[in-house]
Simulated assay, not measured.
Amino acid sequence: MPGPKDLDPSTSPRALLGAELRHARENAGLSQRELGEPLFVSASFIGQLESGTRRMLPDIARRIDEILGTNGFFERNCKAANKSRYPDHFAEAAEAEAVATTIREYAPQLIPGLLQTEAYARAVFRAYQPTAPEETIDELVEARLERARILEDPTEPLLWTVLDEAVLRREVGDGSVMAENLRHVAALIRRHRIIAQVLPFGAGAHPSMGGALKLMAFADAPPLAYFEGPGTGQLEDAPGAVTHHELAYDLVAASALSPRESLALIESVTEDYAHEEHRP
C-alpha cells in the first residue's frame, strides 16, 4: 500500500499532519494511549497532535515514523507544519489559541494581545526591543493584529479576560494610546463579544501573582493551560496541572469586580487618559 503523500505546506499543514497521524495510528490498530506509551507522552498529547493544537517536534516525529512504519513521512513534514511567525516560546500557544472554542485569560501587566490596538502593540514591542529595526517591529505588530482577527467571528471563541488593575494604570505609549485601546476593550464588552473583569488592587494576594495565565478549551481535544514570563512560556496539558490552573483562574475571577463594575472602571480610566491628552 502506498504511504501518505508529503504535505503541501501552504494548506493548513499542522491540521493535515494531525489528520494523517490519526489515519496512520488507526490503520496500525493503536489507541492514542498505546501510541503515547513508547513516546513517553500522554494520550491527550497524541489527541492534541491529531487535532492540530500541538506541534510535532522532530524527535517525536522520528519515533512515530518508527512505531507506525510510515517511512519518514512525519519527520519530513513536521518542519513545514511547525513554521510560525511567532516567537518560539509562544508559537504553539498562539496556534492553539486560533482553534480554541473558549479562552480564559488573566493579564497582570499588559492588555492581552488579542485585545491590543496597533499603537499599543507597537509601544509594547518597542519597549521589549528598543534597538530593533523598524521592519522587525512592523512584523511583530502585524502578527499580533493577525491573531486578533479571531474576534471577527461574532461568537467563537468565547473570550473571558480578567485584567489586573495595573493593566489599566500602567501607561503604555502615552495617554492617547491608552485611551484608544481601553475604548476598544470597552466597545468589545458593550457589543457582548468578550467578557471582561478587573481585579482591583484592593483584592490583595491571589493565586496567579506569578504571571499571566491563559486557559484554552477545544471542540475535539483536551484543554491546555499556558503561562508565561519575559521571553518564556510553557504550555501544559497534564490534566492535574490544567485543573490546578483552572482553579487559580476561578479564584481570581471571583475576587474581581463584576463585569458591569469592571466596564464602569475601564471607561472611567479611559476618560482620565483622554483628559490628560488634552491638557496644555
Rank of each mutant, 00 (worst) to 15 (best):
L182H: 07
R193W: 01
L39Q: 04
R126V: 08
L21V: 11
R22F: 00
V41H: 00
A219K: 04
A91N: 05
A166I: 10
N71H: 09
I103H: 06
M209R: 13
L145I: 14
L49T: 03
R126S: 11
P9V: 11
A91D: 09
E75C: 04
E236F: 14
Q129M: 15
Y106C: 09
V198M: 11
I189Q: 04
P38N: 09
A196D: 07
L114H: 04
A274E: 13
A274Y: 03
S31E: 08
R169F: 05
L257H: 01
L257A: 03
F40I: 06
R14L: 11
H192E: 14
S258K: 09
V162N: 15
S255R: 15
T243S: 06
R63K: 06
I60S: 03
I137Q: 10
I189H: 13
D220W: 02
E139M: 08
Q234S: 12
P58R: 01
T11H: 06
Q109C: 14
R122P: 09
A274W: 01
P13C: 12
H192W: 10
P239T: 04
R14T: 14
L145R: 15
A81S: 15
G47N: 13
T161Y: 08
E171H: 08
S31H: 15
M56R: 01
M56F: 10
P87F: 11
T270V: 12
A19H: 01
R63G: 10
V269Y: 02
E34R: 14
L251N: 10
N77M: 05
E26P: 10
V162L: 12
M209F: 06
P200K: 02
T11K: 12
G47F: 14
L16D: 04
H206E: 01
G72R: 02
L68E: 10
E66D: 11
T117H: 10
D164Q: 02
P112H: 03
L35F: 00
Y273A: 07
S44Q: 14
E105K: 11
L235V: 12
Y86N: 08
S84D: 03
S12N: 14
G52C: 06
L247N: 06
M1P: 12
G204W: 07
R14F: 04
V269M: 00
L247D: 12
E276T: 15
A264K: 06
A81L: 08
L163D: 09
L163I: 13
